[in-house]
């Protein structure tokens, strides 16, 4: 026996979620450690999906797998005890087995994605406010925002919209009192302790500090989004001319 006790704590809570989904909770809270487990597990699911699996959605600290119960039952008919088990129980056992094997795996290597941002001007109508609110200059806000490294905890709310962690508290700013009816695609904003980028035009109450010429949602590509759960991103400032060149060069 190996005397070293492996304790990567891949222990997870496995819960039913209706008759067609199963929820795997790796912990509670927004924490890069917990999210690392989420990422490890989903990378494994990409390589070897569960029988009858339709797709999965990963979140801050959990993964939800959607499946077709009829297919699961069909694919698991061989097991003699399979008949009396719920498909949830069949899948839960498989998930547990997967997690057991995963404990010996190494951590994943995150992708680094750099996103150019034209800060201020008409792109960032709230940049001045964010500076004033935090008793900083506009340049300081830009410096702080573009020198952080952010973790994409999950994609949701809109296609390609990243829930980012890792923003400096020094530039945290509450949401606007009255939300805007429409925020243009590419807008970079701050809401409380969060920063994010809007892939498509939507209404919203975020403080807008800039805009990126990069398309975050590309429905005709696969994958259809620039960012994925587990990515690490950095913002870097560009001038208005660079912004327009980028936009022009693309079209």
């Amino acid at each position: 026996m190996n005397t070293v006790i492996e304790n990567n704590n891949l222990d997870a809570k496995i819960l039913p979620f209706g008759e067609s989904a199963i929820l795997i909770e790796f912990g509670k809270g927004i924490d890069p450690m917990i999210h690392g487990k989420v990422k490890m597990f989903t990378e494994n699911l990409d390589l070897s999906p569960l029988p009858g699996m339709i797709e999965y959605v990963s979140a801050f600290s959990s993964v939800t797998i959607f499946y077709d119960p009829v297919k699961v039952r069909k694919m698991c008919q061989e097991s003699p005890e399979g008949k009396s088990l719920l498909t949830f129980e069949i899948l839960a056992a498989m998930v547990r087995e997967k997690l057991g094997k995963l404990e010996h795996d190494a951590d994943y290597t995150p992708r680094i994605v750099e996103i150019p941002v034209c800060y201020g001007e008409e792109f960032g109508p709230d940049l001045q406010y964010v500076a004033e609110y935090n008793k900083l200059t506009v340049d300081e806000v830009i410096h702080i925002h573009s020198h952080g490294e952010y973790l994409v905890y999950m994609i949701g709310f809109a296609p390609g919209f990243p829930y980012l962690g890792g923003m400096s508290e020094c530039i945290a700013t509450p949401r606007r009192q009255s939300p805007r009816m429409s925020i243009p695609a590419g807008s970079v904003g701050i809401a409380g302790m969060q920063t994010g980028v809007y892939p498509i035009a939507t209404p919203g109450g975020w403080q807008l500090i800039g805009n990126t010429p990069v398309e975050l949602f590309r429905p005709l590509d696969n994958p259809p989004t620039l960012l994925q759960s587990g990515d690490r991103i950095r913002f870097y400032p560009i001038s208005r001319r660079e912004y327009e060149e980028y936009k022009g060069g693309r079209s």
Partner: peptide
């Protein structure tokens, strides 16, 4: 549209 929920696509 299945398989794209993880990208935020409904």
């Amino acid at each position: 549209r299945y398989g794209y929920q993880k990208y935020g696509v409904i």
